[in-house]
Design a protein around this nucleic acid. Structure first.
Lengths: 215, 215
DNA sequence: AATGATAGTGAGTACTCACTCACTTTTATG
DNA sequence: CATAAAAGTGAGTGAGTACTCACTATCATT
């Protein structure tokens, strides 16, 4: 699966085929939104970079905002994808992961690959979320209804097994997420040019997290 | 010191007096940049909100970007202010802080108050840093020359005392900063409406951090 | 009261913006 | 091959955009 197909895979949630030019538009829009921001990028620039006429953009997307949402919505869902799987909690309870550490390792590795693969689209999502209340609201909904609910069950499960400190689950969740997200943000957004040894640094991060959370 | 005076204090690094209208302009610009972003905010809107003519803005700031920098630059310096103080490291070495935990507590509390007080300006700094390479470069310079250098000495000091795990100092620094920043970002940017018990949550965060980092 | 400097004004300017529409080209289907 | 639907085009449009400039108001100093 080449890069183009991956992009296709990320954005094409409802299964429709995208034409070559449509993919050019999306690719150009993602790259330019990520670089300069949505508001500072004009539709004429996107058209030029994509090698299409400006009108072609508006044939597929009613407004510029529509184009943004076509990028941001699928990325939003994919960014919490593991937690959207039906059998996700069940896997944990049925000893797919015997310890919280194994669970964290699986999530960490999985999200590392995701960020690495789709960085520009994730940049756009993250940056524009602050400015668009509708996107922010959708994120909040998905998080509380899917991620938080399932994460809480998992944390309580391992707390009952005596693996985790008796903090409120939301605190354990917050510390887990910010530790992982903190690494990914530093690694890919803040200091992408630093000579990282990813495996080593992720290992240290997990040790830190497990030490910090243990009962 | 009322809110207006604090703003003045934050922005007016070089000691010049600002007129009433100048402060209105800065206040309006900070609020609107924080809400809608720099690129999506027009100078005419800022003028309207500040209650001045549009020309007045350009009397004081040559360009719109100049206005942004007048907000962002002082905020950037203030955001790492503790590390800019000359005697900062000396204080640590002369047992002002006997343990790393005391040092972390002091920084944490200090930066918590800073973020709480100047949240809108910090939003602007954080959001626009991604889009403006000059701002990003200035941040990198300050960080590597001042924050990182001093932080490293402090970490090595406490590692020699056997308080901290023998990770590379940059790893300890990263984990410390992302843990603190992770709390502040969650508290003030991502979930500002959640019913936080700040003292308790900061206490848990520090316990987590110290547990995670101890030798 | 007179002077010069600084602060403030708002209509005007050249230009860019998102978006439209009448038209042409490509593609799918019998 | 014929036909219609879908995709693609690019000049055109009106509503802004950042910024200018000739002018007025305010203020400190003599």
């Amino acid at each position: 699966m080449d890069e183009r197909q991956q992009l296709f895979h990320l954005l094409n949630v409802d299964g429709q085929q995208l034409s070559e030019k449509q993919m050019n538009i999306l690719q150009a829009a993602i790259d330019m939104f990520a670089e300069k921001g949505y508001a500072a990028t004009s539709t004429s620039e996107i058209a030029k970079r994509a090698g299409v006429a400006e009108g072609t953009i508006f044939r597929h997307y009613k407004t510029k905002k529509d184009l943004l949402l076509a990028i941001v919505k699928p990325t939003l869902f994919q960014s919490v994808a593991p937690f959207l799987a039906k059998k996700f909690v069940k896997d944990v309870f049925e000893n797919e992961y015997e310890h919280y550490e194994q669970f964290v390792r699986a999530v960490f590795k999985n999200r590392y690959e995701f960020v690495k693969t789709y960085l520009p689209a994730i940049r756009v999502l993250w940056q524009e979320m602050s400015f668009h209340d509708d996107i922010k609201a959708q994120f909040q909904t998905i998080f509380t209804n899917h991620v938080y609910e399932k994460f809480k069950q998992i944390v309580e499960h391992f707390q009952q097994k005596g693996e985790l400190a008796p903090h409120p689950p939301e605190t354990v969740i917050r510390l887990t997420i910010t530790t992982i997200a903190g690494f990914l943000a530093t690694r890919f957004l803040i200091m992408p040019d630093y000579p990282w040894n990813d495996e080593q640094e992720m290992e240290r991060t997990i040790q830190f997290l497990m030490n910090g959370l243990k009962a």
